[in-house]
């Protein structure tokens, strides 16, 4: 079963944030929206931009670049929000642009190389080589969890 599993195809949505390529599994992505103004939250860490109204529910928007220590994403009307679901939570990730949908087999996902940033290491589950280098597979849970903890 695990061999079969290794060959099974997984689809990722890749996007750029802070000039780096990131990706999350397509099953976690709900929709992609244009940027619209958010309401700031008190005492929020830098990567939590605020909350936005998504058809009547309040969803937090995270600046992915800021989250990975790549500086705040500059304001740009071309920025988009990737709306994703994680464990019943709906959240938005602010990114510079959505690049493509990547279909790879599980064995193409490589382990995260030994990198120094603990934050990055904990929030990236692996990397996938692509034409223009590689894309980092995000562990959405870890991203949200750590941001939440920062707030507390």
């Amino acid at each position: 079963m695990s061999e079969e599993n290794a060959k099974s195809e997984v689809e990722f949505v890749t996007f750029s944030a802070g000039d780096q390529s990131f990706s999350i599994e397509i099953t976690q992505v709900r929709e992609i929206r244009r940027w619209s103004p958010v309401t700031a939250l008190p005492h929020a860490p830098q990567e939590v931009l605020g909350v936005m109204n998504l058809r009547g529910s309040v969803i937090p928007i995270y600046d992915l670049a800021a989250r990975f220590g790549l500086g705040q994403t500059p304001e740009n009307p071309r920025n988009v929000i990737v709306v994703a679901m994680h464990g019943g939570q709906t959240v938005g990730l602010l990114v510079e642009a959505v690049s493509e949908i990547l279909s790879v087999s599980r064995d193409q996902i490589q382990e995260t190389p030994d990198i120094r940033s603990e934050m990055a290491r904990q929030s990236i589950t692996g990397v996938i080589p692509i034409e223009a280098g590689m894309t980092r597979v995000i562990d959405l849970g870890a991203v949200l969890h750590q941001a939440g903890r920062t707030l507390q």
């Binding site: 103004p37 309401t39 936005m52 109204n53 309040v58 707030l151």
Partner: peptide
């Protein structure tokens, strides 16, 4: 439900202009 508790804030609402 989507974020967590925020100090000093009990909840949110959507205003007439759609903003929170």
């Amino acid at each position: 439900s989507n974020f967590g508790s925020v100090p000093g804030v009990s909840a949110a609402t959507v205003l007439g202009d759609g903003r929170i």
